[in-house]
Design a protein around this nucleic acid. Structure first.
Length: 476
RNA sequence: UCCUCCUUAGCUCAGUUGGUUAGAGCACUUGACUGUUAAUCAGGGGGUCGUUGGUUCGAGUCCAACAGGGGGAGCCA
């Protein structure tokens, strides 16, 4: 008999039919009742074994063991579940020595501990829920762009450009560490390296995505991104996934509309397709909040927060307005901000949090930042002071989207590159798009893990990626 | 990288002003029970108190360095 997924058994109303299931034992009660989970859904299937079951089998039904159960799906006699599998036979597929198995249903191992056994943490309710939601969001991303006619463009993971200015890079090389070849000036001879030049892991697919957009019209990337920054926070990874749409004939307002539609679409998708997992995660979060002091509680439950974001439009303000709000705030007057507030500063975490969590109470899109604090490729506004950049700030996460209208005017772009010491030679291919049929265009980047954090309510980004890569940590 | 906190059984945690043989729950094991719901009840085994060094008659407890981890900040997505 072929294996049935537990999800399909629980989803269907029928009873009194034969079925086989395979999964991992979550708990074994009364030498008779197995709570079995196969990863297809949050809920367990109760498998009931007969009293005549061979004792040598019964002894091997331990928490964590992999088993197969064959029998009939029947209406449950007990109270906690609608149906159960009345087993005729049990097969032990893989034993699990409970004395050494670190996961026990009753012990509530901490997220920090589970991070150290990331190879086993998928077996917990929390992580299986998080990774099912992560999958759903990844799928929804492709669906969103596909519905709108975007082309999924695979930009390179290995890049020769180090002029993107998006952060420290990981070097990619096959040169030996001992006896590294040197040129006549004594510098490392990258001409002898695999690609004949210095190469790195990508920090962004944006520049390449722009090339695609200037022919295909609307493209997006969705792939791994690498930053060799020594960042030790709950919001940073050395290897993370990023989505970068790029749209020809679009301005900053089209860009904000797309980004807002996108974020709200993803949340609606999760609410519709991950109800059970989100309910579980919401409950988990609520339990966690109970142990926090009153002041640190968020006040809104996970589902309320997601529903509110999905149903209400984001606040849109300019950078100049944001500075005005901060300067007029009670927090500023009481000198609550650690960092200075004045026109020209980069907004600090505390400023973003004030705007999003205290002042507006919902996601905020801030646009038209001072050109000095933004990248060379952002389009210069008429005022000569600002660029058409926009960031979406989300409650609890901070910056979740960063984007801009791109500078399509060759002279302006060229001039800005000179001012910011970005070498023209290395980016001739980028500049060519401005030489040959340039057009207004815009795009943004969305940090996938930050989106997963927002939807699942997980506080640490290391808990929403299967195998986190952070400074001093590349285990598994 | 900076500030700060933590590290005691497989897991979650107690351990008082430095003082006898370091405790509990879960897990494991032996037995009982058999429609349980984190099953329950009774007995049992299980410890290099992160590592190294120091102070002291005596260190899980005090001090230092190192390692690992958490929280906050910077950089950013």
């Amino acid at each position: 008999m072929s294996r049935s997924k537990i999800k399909s058994i629980l989803d269907h109303q029928a009873t009194d039919y034969p079925a086989s299931v395979k999964g991992w034992v979550r708990s074994f009660r009364n030498n008779q009742f197995i709570a079995l989970n196969d990863g297809s859904c949050q809920a367990n299937l109760q498998v009931v074994i007969g009293l005549e079951t061979d004792e040598s089998i019964v002894k091997r039904i331990t928490a964590g063991a992999a088993i197969a159960a064959h029998g009939n799906i029947v209406a449950s006699l007990g109270k906690g579940q609608r149906v159960e599998l009345k087993a005729d036979s049990i097969e032990i597929l893989g034993d699990c020595d409970g004395e050494q198995y670190p996961l026990q249903l009753k012990n509530r191992p901490s997220l920090e501990y589970l991070r150290e056994i990331a190879h086993l943490r998928f077996r917990t309710n929390t992580f299986s829920a998080v990774f099912r939601v992560r999958h759903a969001l990844a799928f929804a991303i492709h669906q969103f762009f596909n519905e709108r006619g975007f082309v999924y463009l695979h930009t390179p993971v290995i890049t020769a450009s180090d002029a993107e200015g998006a952060g420290e890079m990981f070097r990619v090389t096959t040169l030996p560490f001992d006896g590294t070849p040197r040129n006549e000036q004594g510098a490392v001879a990258f001409s002898e390296d695999f690609f004949g030049r210095a190469t790195n892991l990508t920090v962004s697919g944006q520049l390449e995505a722009e090339l695609g957009a200037m022919a295909l019209g609307e493209v997006y990337t969705f792939g791994p991104t690498f930053r060799a920054e020594n960042s030790n926070t709950a919001r940073h990874l050395a290897e993370f996934w990023m989505i970068e749409p790029e749209v020809a004939f679009a301005d900053i307002h089209d860009n904000m509309n797309l980004a807002e539609d996108f974020v709200r679409y993803l949340i609606r998708y999760a609410l519709e397709h991950c109800t059970e997992d989100l309910n579980f995660l919401a409950q988990r979060l609520a339990d966690e909040e109970k142990n926090k002091p009153q002041q640190e509680r968020s006040g809104m439950g996970l589902l309320e927060k997601l529903t509110s974001v999905a149903e209400n439009s984001f606040e849109r303000i300019t950078y100049t307005e944001a500075i005005g709000i901060l300067l007029a705030s009670p927090a500023f007057k009481k000198k609550k901000f650690q960092y200075e507030v004045k026109w020209g500063i980069d907004l600090q975490s505390e400023h973003e949090r004030y705007l999003v969590e205290k002042h507006f109470g919902k996601p905020v899109i801030v646009r038209d930042y001072p050109k000095e604090i933004k990248a060379f490729y952002m389009r210069q506004n008429e005022d000569g002071k600002t660029v058409a950049a926009m960031d979406i700030l989300a409650p609890g996460i901070g910056e979740i989207v960063g984007g801009s209208q791109r500078e399509e005017r060759l002279d302006k772009l060229s001039q800005r590159m000179e001012e910011m010491h970005v070498p023209h030679e290395e980016l001739y291919w980028y500049l060519d798009t401005r030489r040959f049929g340039t057009a207004p265009h815009a795009g943004f980047g969305l940090g996938f893990e930050r989106m997963v954090q927002f939807v699942t309510g997980m506080g640490n980004i290391r808990d929403v990626i299967p195998f986190p890569r952070t400074p001093k940590n590349a285990e598994f």
